[in-house]
């Protein structure tokens, strides 16, 4: 029996944006405040899972045509890439660096290669969580 889930779908349309914004905030807050790549990735993945709950799989795949296994692989590649990159500067493996760069409008901003490493972690978490949810939900 298919019930009319108009309320769930309408609320999802609004709430998914709030969840994704919170995920991105948590990702960027990780350097000086609670947060970071892992929890940011989990919150982003929970937003995508909410979409899968409200709509069917085909609709979400039309909107997000990613293969989430490849997303996880790309995340691992980014994280290990920053680790290998330190070898080119005669530094030990996994050495991270940061510096302050003058951006034209925003003034002095701190940039760090840890952000790239954390982006890899976040992508891995998103890919793994969504792949797990999709694998156990498919009825073959």
């Amino acid at each position: 029996m298919k019930i009319n889930d108009v309320i769930l779908r309408t609320v999802t349309k609004t709430v998914v944006f709030i969840i994704l914004t919170l995920g991105i905030y948590l990702f960027f807050a990780g350097h000086h405040a609670p947060g970071g790549g892992f929890i940011g990735g989990l919150v982003l993945a929970s937003g995508i899972v909410l979409l899968y709950l409200a709509y069917d799989i085909e609709t979400v795949h039309k909107g997000m045509p990613f293969d989430f296994k490849k997303v996880a692989a790309l995340g691992v590649l980014l994280a290990t890439g920053t680790a290998i990159g330190s070898l080119f500067f005669d530094a030990p493996f996994l050495t991270q660096t940061h510096s302050y760069i003058n951006v034209p409008i925003f003034g002095k901003m701190g940039f760090s290669t840890v952000t790239i490493f954390e982006a890899g972690v976040a992508l891995t978490v998103v890919g793994v969580v969504v792949t797990i949810i999709l694998s156990i939900s498919e009825d073959e």
Binding site: I3, N4, V6, I7, R9, T10, V11
Partner: peptide, 27 residues
């Protein structure tokens, strides 16, 4: 419209004493 029905259902549910339990298929 969908958002109107959602808003009305939420308002009816949030005022105590009444709860929306189901929306019919043709809304």
């Amino acid at each position: 419209q969908e958002w109107e029905i959602t808003l009305l259902s939420s308002l009816i549910t949030l005022t105590p004493g009444t709860v929306v339990v189901h929306v019919s298929d043709d809304a």
